[in-house]
Amino acid sequence: MTVQNKSRLTVFVLAVLVWAALTDIRKIEELIIGLVVAAIVSLLAGKFFLTGERRQRLWRRVGYGVYYLIHFIWEMIKANVHVAYLVIHPRVPIKPGIIKIKTNLSRETALTVLANSITLTPGTLTIDIDPAKKILYIHWIDVQSTTVEESTRQIGGRFEAILMEVFE
């Protein structure tokens, strides 16, 4: 079986399982519709799920992924309390600016996750990525440094080391 078909089959099985969780699967109408929708989805978009690359040290990476998730949720709670504080404060003490940071990540998935994490964590919002130069442009609501190195340490440093372990 080719990688693409294997990927499609995996997506089909997962989609049917999700459908079973979402609906009352004992009714025959629900089951038929679920199978049809799962088939269409897996035919259209299924080939992107598995890429057929060699995956090494899978469990170690899954472990780091879980660690990343916990770390990320904690940072997110801090982000929310921070924004709430800024908004309630009578003078709105912000010092906004757009700065850039460097990253060592190269895979697209890793960059996407990094950019999304930066958006959801304290005071920072990713505006653009330059994959060729590996630069992320970030809007910072409370700018603490304008040099690239210092900003990289303060913003990207929170996640980059862990993401390196998960994706690279």
Partner: peptide, 21 residues
């Protein structure tokens, strides 16, 4: 708080910060 931020913060970018987080 997000909605309050949308009203109180000055420009598009700062408002997006409140709105997303």
């Amino acid at each position: 708080f997000g909605v309050l931020g949308l009203v109180r913060l000055p420009d598009v970018y700062n408002r997006l910060q409140a709105a997303t987080k």
